[in-house]
Design a protein around this nucleic acid. Sequence first.
DNA 1: ACACGACCTTCCGC
DNA 2: AGCGGAAGGTCGT
Length: 371
Amino acid sequence: MTNWKKLTCTLQELRLDVALVCGQSFRWKEIKPGVFRSVLAGGVWTLTQTNEGDVLYEVNRPETPKHKLSNKCRVTTHATTKTKFQLTDEDILKDYFQLNTSLKDLYDQWSKADSNFSKIASKFVGVRTLRIDPTENLISFICSSNNNISRITGMVEAMCTNYGDMLMEMDGEKWYSFPDAACLTGPDVETKLRKLGFGYRAGYISSSADFIMQNGGTEWVKSLRNVTYAEAKESLLKLKGVGPKVADCVCLFSLDKTEAIPVDTHVWQITARDYMPKLTKTKSLTAKVYQEIGNCYRQLFGQYAGWAHSVLFSADLRKFKELQEKQHEPGLEIKREHGSTTEKQKNRKRQARKLVKTEKEVAKRIKTEIE
DNA sequence: ACACGACCTTCCGC
DNA sequence: AGCGGAAGGTCGT
């Protein structure tokens, strides 16, 4: 039924099942085991990967042009959509995964520089930094502050269903584009977002959308790709609800700033444990400590330190612990022979089940609220 | 510069 | 049953 197209790839260059759901983008859904779906560049993309590493993909686009779809908000499309060099689907995919940069070469370089990385990397290949639409990424990460993953995912989805364009229905589910910043301006946006459960982030989003529109819209955010890391970060920090961490997420996942290191509580812990033991004494994540942590990784890994950070961060996520063990940790089988699994393993499995459960519930609840 | 506390909301553990 | 603490921070003092 599905008509896959193939993009030649290897697992060393890309592990779809990790890269899509390790907290860079909040929009990929695993619709079947190993099959992922999301909206990209105005189309609905379905992706999976063969055992050899080739990426299989299918794109579905709405029949009607975008500007006719929505009565919520009309945006005059830029002339840029009419360039004479039309991007192919493969171009779009290669750009999203930044496949022109060899991840294997980088892994080799980082492994040589750091034995801890080397140990992790051998069991955790293909963790690739994505190149996400800048404004989508920015708004999404404003939602992330002092918040948990399942709720963030639900909020981003609510954002799309309430302010985006419905592109099409597939397998009984409607797929929406991420809203343009123009759709998020106006006096009633904050109130509505609050009603949708965004909390105090409603004001941040409304204010930031206004700021973006006053500075040239989404094209302005995108244009930060053409300035230095320091300049891009400085600009982003002007937006309400954007602090150093969110700014670095946008720099790294959207603006080609490969040396940006987003430091959240999680990265702070990892760094204290594996790289800077003195940090265990620090009480809070001050600007100075934030800078020190970034510098530590940049010194160790070089220009692509942010990409290396993505590997270390993902490898430490609870939901990937089992993946690592199953594949490469012989200790697991030995423990099983002794009868029961350890408490730690049981806890992890329980947590993983909960994660899946809550994500589903949140999505369902938000859907019913809208109707 | 740095340390606090407040902030929406949800979920989890006791 | 109900309350405290944390969740991929940021803002204001």
